[in-house]
Design a protein around this nucleic acid. Structure first.
Length: 288
DNA sequence: CGGATTTGACCGGCGC
DNA sequence: GCGCCGGTCAAATCCG
């Protein structure tokens, strides 16, 4: 985008304002004398004429800028739809086992229907812990009762199963397992929604810190996993961090997709080409 | 002693 | 039908 034009117009606006101000000051200073006044009126008329002309020029520039912005927005929308189509293709065509495929279809569904999916009952959170810490306890504001532990096939570290301590009145469950990629990270999968507020903090010691950003956990993960925490909102100690994650869930998904796409040199080149092409076409058709 | 945790057994879904 | 696997149950054990 041609930013120099914007800067010029702004400067002109400032200069014209300065002219007006100085003229008004001069008028106040030279109250006596008709010839002085008539000379001043002539100067003011000149200033007004210049200002109207500048105003027209600025309006014209604004119009051009608005049109350019529309072109950029159209390109953005086209790229966004291409991104969604690409995500669909990847999820359906890639050769992977059925479980992983199901998971990605679920992710795609989240992408397509974010508002409905945000109401879904499964969520994932990541907790930074000491790699030597073998306990699978995370500090998420709620009290849990462990009811099982299993070693799963895809992860050598055991998976712990927890129920909310308010069960059976509260049906929420969670699974906690150490990340395969990063042993110092616990992955907590929550199922269901709490129908009560968080118990007071300090009731039960826990080893892990509050949830952390997944982008700092899985920098090499090419497949973004929806990460948000719905519980703990009523707990002031947890509120700031977790509210951020809840609100930023769709934003995080977008950021992950953008970052994974920008890691792709082909996509970056295509994007740069598309934008520069659009800009060049625009500048050719417009008489700047 | 009561609540929480551990751990082996059991169950159901799914693929072959 | 069988085996695999994830999830759950429940008796045993631990701990404050």
């Amino acid at each position: 985008m041609d930013t120099t034009r914007v800067d010029t117009s702004l400067d002109l606006r400032i200069n014209s304002l300065q002219n007006c101000n100085s003229s008004a000051m001069d008028l106040r200073r030279d109250r006596g004398g008709v010839t002085e006044k008539s000379r001043e009126v002539g100067t003011l008329q000149q200033d007004v004429g210049i200002s109207v002309e500048e105003f027209r020029r600025m309006s014209s520039e604004n119009k051009k800028l608005t049109e350019t912005l529309n072109v950029v927005l159209l390109g953005y929308n086209a790229l966004q739809s291409q991104m969604i189509n690409l995500a669909k293709e990847i999820s359906t065509n890639e050769a992977m086992d059925s479980r992983k495929r199901k998971f990605e279809d679920y992710d795609l569904e989240l992408w397509k229907r974010p508002t409905e999916s945000m109401k879904s009952r499964t969520s994932v959170a990541y907790f930074q812990v000491d790699a030597s810490d073998t306990s699978l306890v995370v500090k998420d504001g709620y009290q849990w009762r462990k009811y099982g532990q299993k070693v799963t096939r895809d992860n050598p570290s055991p998976r712990a199963y927890f129920k909310c301590s308010f069960a059976p009145s509260c049906p929420v469950k969670k699974k906690v397992q150490r990340s395969v990629e990063n042993p110092s990270v616990l992955v907590a999968t929550y199922e269901g929604e709490h129908n009560h507020r968080c118990p007071p903090q300090g009731a039960k010691p826990a080893s892990a810190s509050p949830p952390i950003s997944p982008s700092s956990v899985k920098p090499s993960n090419p497949n973004p996993i929806l990460d948000f925490v719905r519980c703990g909102l009523s707990n002031p100690a947890m509120k700031t961090k977790q509210e951020t994650e809840v609100g930023a869930a769709p934003q995080f998904l977008v950021q992950e997709m953008v970052s994974s796409l920008t890691r792709d040199p082909n996509f970056t080149a295509s994007l740069a080409e598309a934008i520069s092409g659009a800009m060049l076409d625009r500048s050719r058709t417009q008489s700047w």
